[in-house]
Amino acid sequence: MKIAIVSVSDKGEKLAFDIKEKLDNDSTVIKCDIFHKNVKKHLSLAFFEYDAIIAIMASGILIRSIAALIDSKVTDPAIINVDDNGNFVISTLSGHLGGANELTNKIANLINATPVITTSTDVNKKLGIDVLAKDLYLNIDNTKEILHFNKAILEGEEISLLLNPNKNFDYLFEYLKKNTLEIHVSINYSTDVNPDEIHACIDGHEIILREKKIVVGIGCRRGKECEKILDGFLKSIYDLNIHKSRVNLLTSAEIKKDEKGILNLSDFLDIPVEFVDLDRLKLFESKDVQKSEFVKSKFGIWGVCEPSALIMAGFDSKLIYKKTSYDGVTIAIATSK
């Protein structure tokens, strides 16, 4: 997640730097930038350039500044509102699909504040269909149906989930088993359903949830053991609450194509691995990739795990886990749009 923090007062700016310092140590935060004063200008910029905005200001200033920018719960960024004293963190826009509710709880925990969340499913301890989709990195084909499904969930009705019987859906079963929010579902199977889809049905209404491609990029020292690479892999997906069965692909640079540790990891996890040509890596550009002078001097590319993951996740992909080191192993994770 790319986060912009916008503040107005001197006290708010001090709080912004405190929050940024904490978020910079979070591997799930790809970047965090601070903007001070010139609220309308900075909010207008951040609205389209960042995944989330933390607005440290009065709610009236925030609402008036973003009113003309709001378009859709599918595309609008997550926006949370924090008072200057850091007493309350309020989920203001895109609570579910945008991730504002989750970010609200995270920031409130970091600064010891009270989180304020008002979405109906959350306050009634129910699992919204859009929350399920976001948590499992699934696209929703018909977002207009979200309201109907969440209303049914609030009323305790049962949702039917239709799956392909030949696909491993352990990630879905584990999620439903461990989730503390209430939802009533029945699981059915049909070979007519594409393997990368989950069809949710109720009262003649249907939503198709399609898996985004999740790609784990790996870099490592020569001869690194499979067990060490596995340790970094498991720690990174744990940070994102991703089940290993939800990962679609492992990847690295072609210079690692003979690395036994990576090849053995692919076999052990039963997840395919692909290696990216050096020429593709040399041509690839992204503002989100961390540049390594050492890797550049040795192989002529700026990095391995981040660009490999982004390339293999496809056009317009995004990092959800920045390059993180684990004892000679680097891991980055990207998803398709």
Rank of each mutant, 00 (worst) to 15 (best):
L154T: 05
E155W: 03
E155C: 08
E155S: 10
E155A: 07
E155D: 14
G156P: 09
G156R: 09
G156W: 08
E157K: 15
E157C: 05
E157D: 06
E157H: 13
E157P: 08
E157T: 05
E157A: 06
E158C: 10
E158W: 04
E158L: 08
E158V: 12
E158D: 04
E158F: 02
I159C: 06
I159V: 09
S160I: 11
S160T: 15
S160W: 02
S160N: 14
S160F: 01
S160P: 04
L161D: 13
L161G: 12
L161P: 13
L161Y: 10
L161S: 11
L161V: 10
L161N: 13
L162E: 12
L162D: 07
L162Q: 12
L162K: 14
L162I: 14
L163R: 08
L163I: 05
L163T: 11
N164F: 03
N164E: 06
N164Q: 08
N164S: 07
N164Y: 06
P165Y: 01
P165C: 00
P165S: 01
N166T: 02
N166W: 05
N166A: 03
N166S: 08
K167D: 03
K167E: 13
K167Y: 10
K167I: 01
N168S: 02
F169G: 00
F169V: 00
F169I: 00
D170M: 09
D170C: 08
D170L: 07
Y171Q: 11
Y171L: 11
Y171G: 10
Y171V: 08
Y171M: 09
Y171F: 15
Y171T: 10
Y171N: 12
L172G: 05
L172H: 07
L172N: 05
F173Q: 02
Y175R: 07
Y175I: 01
Y175M: 03
L176G: 14
L176E: 12
K177L: 15
K177P: 10
K177M: 14
K178M: 00
K178W: 00
K178D: 01
K178N: 01
N179Q: 12
T180E: 04
T180H: 05
L181M: 01
L181R: 03
L181S: 03
E182Q: 13
E182A: 09
E182M: 07
I183T: 14
I183R: 05
H184K: 14
H184A: 04
H184E: 09
H184Y: 09
V185M: 07
V185P: 08
V185N: 14
V185R: 14
S186V: 04
S186A: 07
I187M: 02
I187Y: 01
I187P: 03
I187S: 02
